[in-house]
């Protein structure tokens, strides 16, 4: 935007908006004076090391699980919008006849010209990368891994297969599969919040780990059955000097599975459509 465009009514609106934002931020800072709490970290430290195997995962999904849920949705919506806006494909395929895709023949995949080492090690690499992605998502509650990382890793395996083998990609994720995977992932993440909402009125409350119900003033109690159903499958022992404590990540692994599905669906769809373009025909139809 040129500065000249800010003259007139548009400039006045921009100026008023800037003044309002500046005033809001300024008064927010002034209100902080003397009211700054020391943060919630001490409370998490006090509670989480006994109640969840990975402090960081517990913090993230307890403090901003709902925010991450919306972010996950943004990724999927972003993928759909990308497909709608740019999904014509860089490779000429049997798509819309009336308007040819962008003619970039130099980008055509030519599996026959792939070096032999890539051709024969491509499939093992793809399978091992997928396995690695699954290792990462299953370690979400106990390590630095998680759903986003898993999604990106498996999508990379898909892209690798696409780059080496073209349309004969051994990891043959179709558009229907990818759309379904993304939708199921987002739905899984969202539905993980329902038990917590019903029990405590907090959406995405981790009923399996149940970090806060023993805290004074916490509104709601998690029934034993919910704690058992969501907590037992992921229970681990923490062997400390003070003794052995049993802890559970609760719904964090399930949430991460949902995230992983969603990211695989979104990124895979982008890769698929950017490479081959979108066609309303069913897969396999000519």
């Amino acid at each position: 935007m040129e500065m000249g465009e800010l003259k007139g009514a548009r400039g006045i609106v921009a100026l008023v908006a800037l003044v309002i934002i500046f005033a809001g931020v300024l008064f927010s800072f002034l209100q902080l004076n003397g009211n700054v709490a020391r943060g919630i970290s001490p409370e998490y430290n006090r509670l989480a090391y006994l109640e969840a195997p990975n402090n960081l995962a517990s913090w993230v999904y307890d403090l901003r699980g709902f925010d991450t849920f919306i972010e996950t949705g943004v990724i999927y919506v972003g993928a759909v919008v990308s497909v709608l806006a740019l999904g014509r494909g860089i490779v000429k395929v049997k798509g819309p006849r009336e308007e040819e895709p962008v003619p970039q023949t130099s980008f055509d995949f030519k599996p026959d010209t792939v070096p032999i080492i890539l051709k024969y090690f491509g499939l093992p690499a793809i399978m091992l990368i997928v396995s690695y992605g699954l290792l990462i998502v299953t370690g979400a509650a106990t390590s630095g891994g998680g759903g986003f990382q898993c999604g990106v890793i498996i999508s990379s395996a898909y892209l690798l297969g696409m780059a080496i083998y073209g349309k004969s990609n051994p990891l043959n994720l179709g558009k229907k599969f990818l759309i379904g995977l993304g939708s199921i992932g987002w739905a899984t993440y969202g539905l993980c919040g329902l038990p917590g909402y019903l029990a405590t009125h907090y959406w995405q409350y981790n009923v399996g780990a149940d970090l806060w119900s023993s805290y004074p003033g916490f509104p709601g109690a998690v029934p034993e059955i919910l704690r058992t159903v969501f907590g037992d499958p992921f229970r681990l022992a923490l062997v400390l000097k003070e003794g052995t404590f049993y802890s559970s990540a609760g719904i964090v692994p399930i949430i991460n599975l949902g995230e992983a599905f969603n990211v695989i669906g979104a990124l895979g769809l982008i890769f698929l459509v950017f490479a081959y373009g979108w066609s309303d025909r069913k897969e396999g139809e000519t």
């Binding site: 997928v130 699954l134 299953t138 058992t228 049993y246 599975l257």
Partner: peptide, 21 residues
Amino acid sequence: VMLLPEMAGEIAPIIIAFLLG
């Protein structure tokens, strides 16, 4: 109450990874 074996969290990722595989 523990319905599943102790430290079920060590076995659960193996089963989940297998099913996802």
